[in-house]
Simulated assay, not measured.
Amino acid sequence: MAQRGTLGVAVIGTGRMGADHVRRIHQVISGARVSAVVDVDAERAKRVAAPVHGCTAYTDPAAAMAAADVDAVLIASPGPAHEATLLTAFEHGLPVLCEKPLTPDAASALRVLRAEQGLGRRRVQVGFMRRYDAEYVKLKSLLDTGQLGRPLMLHNRHRNVASPPGFTSSMLISDSVAHETDVTRWLLGHEITAVTVLRPTPSANAPDGIQDPQFVVFETDGGAVVDVEIFVNCGFGYQVQAEMVCERGTARLGDGHALVTNMAGRWGGTIAQDYTERFADAYDREVQAWVDATRRDEVTGPSVWDGYAAAAVCEAGVRALEEGGRVEVELVDRPPLYGTSA
């Protein structure tokens, strides 16, 4: 298949994630260049664009997408802005890498799904970067061989040093556990059918009014049970760990023991302090995979269906947090456009 030349990418949103993607495409990724950046803050957009030769700063996503040197779009703006940006990209026939969440709720995600269905082809890869992390890829490959037997349980731990300003109890699920939602579906090939949220006594380190930590339990249509410890004010570092328990064995990732030192009467290693450090390689591989597929006029990786399913599970999780008890996940039938497996 013929391959496009260098891909001109418009990065929409120049906050921490967007600026990091601009750096990544400009300095790390092959086959693409940043031809436009967009932000409602014009001065910030100009600052991010300035080091990139030939990059134009915009405040209007539609204007950037109409530019002749824009071939694809990377959306890194806040979640509530995603739906309108995605629909505009569809109007311009542009392929998209959209950071999670696809949209903040299941209803808007379903509107995007139906709009993409109307195109008759996939145009969006959703930014669930854990699918590109070396340890998760190795675990997925091992599970797919069947050597460990049928998956029975998956234990997850997700810890952050501190929550950012404005973080709420429900955001522990919608912004953080969203990652475990997707990786559970991907690793197991199951859909999540119900969510229960248990509420330990909040940590003294959590801001007033924030229920942190939380213990989230998923049930799946394949009979597996999955738990997630989410603790966003642990104080000591950023950790993502998982252990898969199967009929004939277990597999664990995220221990972070690549380098262990012995010095001054102590042994140990370092703990990453945020997600951009822990998943730097995964982000690089994710964006490179998107660029390579787009240049082949293909779309691979997490789909709009995956974004919709994650939104629906997170909505059920927020209800379980706020109302208590077990909440079932409601999904529409999976359209043929998105295949048959989770």
Rank of each mutant, 00 (worst) to 15 (best):
A272I: 01
C246G: 13
G254I: 05
F279N: 05
A272N: 08
G237S: 06
W290I: 13
V304H: 06
V287R: 12
V232M: 14
D306W: 11
A312Y: 11
V240D: 11
E277T: 12
G235A: 15
A311P: 08
F236I: 15
R248A: 01
G235P: 14
R248W: 09
A224R: 14
F231L: 12
V304N: 05
L253H: 02
R296S: 08
G307V: 11
C234W: 13
V225T: 13
G301N: 08
T270H: 01
R285A: 11
E243R: 14
V291P: 04
C246F: 00
G256K: 06
V245H: 07
V225K: 15
D281C: 03
D281R: 05
G268T: 08
R295W: 01
A282D: 00
D227A: 12
D306A: 12
T261P: 02
G307T: 09
R295T: 00
G254N: 00
D227F: 15
A309S: 14
T250C: 10
E229H: 12
L253E: 02
V240S: 13
M244V: 14
R296A: 04
R296Q: 09
A282L: 01
D255P: 02
P302M: 15
Q241H: 12
G265K: 05
G301W: 04
M263D: 02
W267E: 06
V245S: 03
W290T: 13
G301V: 02
H257G: 09
D306P: 08
D227E: 10
A258Y: 06
N233V: 13
G237L: 11
E229S: 13
F236R: 15
